[in-house]
Each structure stands twice: as structure tokens, then as C-alpha cells.
Design a protein around this nucleic acid. Structure first.
Length: 200
DNA sequence: CATTGTGTTGAA
DNA sequence: TCAACACAATGG
């Protein structure tokens, strides 16, 4: 969580709007909401939820209760990157991301507008295009994902030397042959440590 | 108390 | 199928 928020505004979230206005009975359909916490704390990246076979990334704002939908993704890498950009944009700087090293590679939202962030997230996701992204032969399952990232404490996360690389390698579907990721700047692996702060 | 994550439901 | 909302729990 890493919540060093400064603004502690009491978001009074009471009666929300009930979407269904047509004929809403009262029995049947359980409202919405989760039942009990499963053991599955967060098998995947933060802000990345997996829907039976798919991946969706949603970002909620620190102050608001609303959330920004980055969109749907097929692979965790995409969703992870998407959240990365969004969090970076929202927090502005030093946000908890999954790919700090690739952070510079992430596109920057023109504006801090929710929509812009969504776009940026999509762009970032584009970077992680893989086979599944391309509609052709789908079959493989997407499964199983590296359990290496067992985040116990946020601090520990930063202590991960090669963990990132490990999972990155596994996720990074950028083999020497066949497919290859298209990067906006250079496909080269040079690290341009350029402090690009669009806004802050 | 704030934040995230899951689940359900609803609409596209 | 996707998107949004709502709920529940955890962590601080």
C-alpha cells in the first residue's frame, strides 16, 4: 500500500448510485461485493486483476473513491505496465510500480486528465504486446505465474536484486526471434537515465 | 481510517 | 465481454 498520503480527506462514501433503475426487485441477484477473502492475496501485480483468462487494470485515485480504468489486457506485463504509468501519473513521482527500470520507457500522459492517463496506460500496454495480443491461434493458457514476487513488505520489494529480472524474463515475451517488442524510442537496451518529469 | 482487491452485476 | 459499481478485508 505505501500510503504516505498527506491529504486525509474523509471520503464520505455512502449510498452510491444504484445502476439498475429499471425494475430492481430485491431478491435474487446479490448486490455486488466480495464475500470472504481468499488466500489469494495478490498473486499478480498490483492494480492488476485477472478475469478468467484476461487481465484488467484499474487505478483508483488517492483522494477519490472513483477509479480509472486503464483497460483490459491479455498478459500481466501489459496490465502491470499500464498501472505503472497510471500510478506514476497520479502520484507524479516515485510511485509504487512494477517496472521502475522500464518506467522511463513508459509513455507520459500529456495531461493529468483521467482520459489521458488511460491512453498512456494503453500505450504502455502496447509495449508488452505478445502472441496472445495478436488474434490468431489462441490456445495456450496463461497461467501460472511466477510466484517469486512474494511481497511481504514494501521495503523488501526494494531489496529484490534480480527478482524483477526473473519475472521480467519469464513475462518478457521478447524472444530474439519471432516476435519482438516495439519500443517507441529505441529498441536498443540503452538506459537513458533522463529525468523526465512531465508535470511535477 | 485509508487503500486495494475481489465479486457481482449491468450494459455494450 | 467489458466496464462499473459495491463490498469486504487488510494494513497503517
Amino acid at each position: 500500500m505505501v500510503q504516505s498520503s498527506k491529504s486525509h480527506e474523509i471520503s464520505s462514501s455512502s449510498s452510491q448510485s444504484e445502476a439498475g433503475s429499471t425494475s430492481l426487485g430485491q431478491s435474487q441477484k446479490r448486490k455486488a461485493g466480495r464475500k470472504k477473502f481468499k488466500e489469494t492475496r495478490h498473486p499478480i501485480f498490483k492494480g492488476v486483476r485477472t478475469r478468467k483468462g484476461k487481465w484488467v487494470s484499474e487505478v483508483r485515485e488517492p483522494n477519490k473513491k472513483s477509479r480509472i480504468w486503464l483497460g483490459t489486457f491479455s498478459c500481466p506485463g501489459m496490465a502491470a505496465k499500464a498501472y505503472d504509468v497510471a500510478a506514476l501519473a497520479l502520484r507524479g513521482d516515485a510511485a509504487f510500480l512494477n517496472f521502475p527500470e522500464s518506467a522511463h520507457t513508459l509513455p507520459h500522459p500529456k495531461s493529468l486528465s483521467v482520459k489521458d492517463i488511460q491512453i498512456a496506460a494503453m500505450e504502455a500496454a502496447e509495449t508488452f504486446i505478445d502472441d496472445k495480443t495478436l488474434p490468431d491461434s489462441l490456445s495456450s493458457a496463461v497461467p501460472a505465474f511466477p510466484e517469486n514476487m512474494v511481497f511481504e513488505d514494501e521495503d523488501e520489494v526494494f531489496n529484490m536484486p534480480g527478482i524483477l529480472e526473473s519475472m521480467a524474463e519469464g513475462l518478457m515475451i521478447t524472444p530474439p526471434s519471432t516476435q519482438k517488442g516495439y519500443y517507441p524510442d529505441d529498441d536498443d537496451g540503452n538506459d537513458y537515465v533522463e529525468v523526465i518529469l512531465w508535470g511535477d
